[in-house]
């Protein structure tokens, strides 16, 4: 699996405006919604689901990276969005550091293996420190997508 298999290019946000956890999750999900990823689904309900998941433990995995996610009944395929915060956001990460790079993933409830693979793929790609630095320096969504793809090899 490659990140480009599920990251929606047109939804990528190179300069997240939000400064808190809920705001970032909302900004990323609304971007996916604007790009037609959720049909017949109330985006507010998905926001609630992702926030509920965060209450079980932050998806900030350290090194300035977070992978907020949920499985959701109303979606029929795995979708994800990449977002970068210029200033960093306090996300309750394991290492206590702010998060700059976010990959939000929504997957169908009946495909747990796909969900695990998506999280693994994102983690494998974002283990590359030079890539994360490069992502933080991208000015546009297209640049972010190209950078991500350059490193996102199976």
């Amino acid at each position: 699996m490659r990140m480009s298999d599920f990251i929606v290019r047109s939804a990528i946000i190179p300069d997240l405006k939000a400064t808190d956890k809920e705001g970032v999750i909302r900004e990323l999900l609304e971007s996916l919604c604007r790009n037609g990823c959720f049909k017949d689904v109330d985006v507010e309900d998905i926001i609630k689901a992702v926030l509920k998941r965060e209450l079980l433990g932050s998806t900030g995995i350290g090194e300035g990276i977070a992978i907020p996610h949920t499985k959701y009944n109303g979606v029929d395929k795995l979708v994800g969005v990449l977002g970068v915060s210029p200033t960093g956001v306090s996300f309750g990460s394991r290492d206590g550091e702010p998060v700059f790079v976010f990959v939000l993933i929504i997957s169908p409830v009946d495909q747990p293996v796909l969900h695990l693979r998506a999280l693994e793929t994102v983690s494998r790609v974002l283990r590359d420190e030079p890539l994360v630095k490069a992502l933080r320096n991208c000015a546009t969504a297209d640049q972010l997508f190209e950078q991500m793809n350059q490193y996102s090899k199976t």
Partner: peptide, 8 residues
């Protein structure tokens, strides 16, 4: 955590 994230 980063390493265990690779265990799918």
């Amino acid at each position: 955590m980063f390493e265990l994230m690779l265990v799918a």
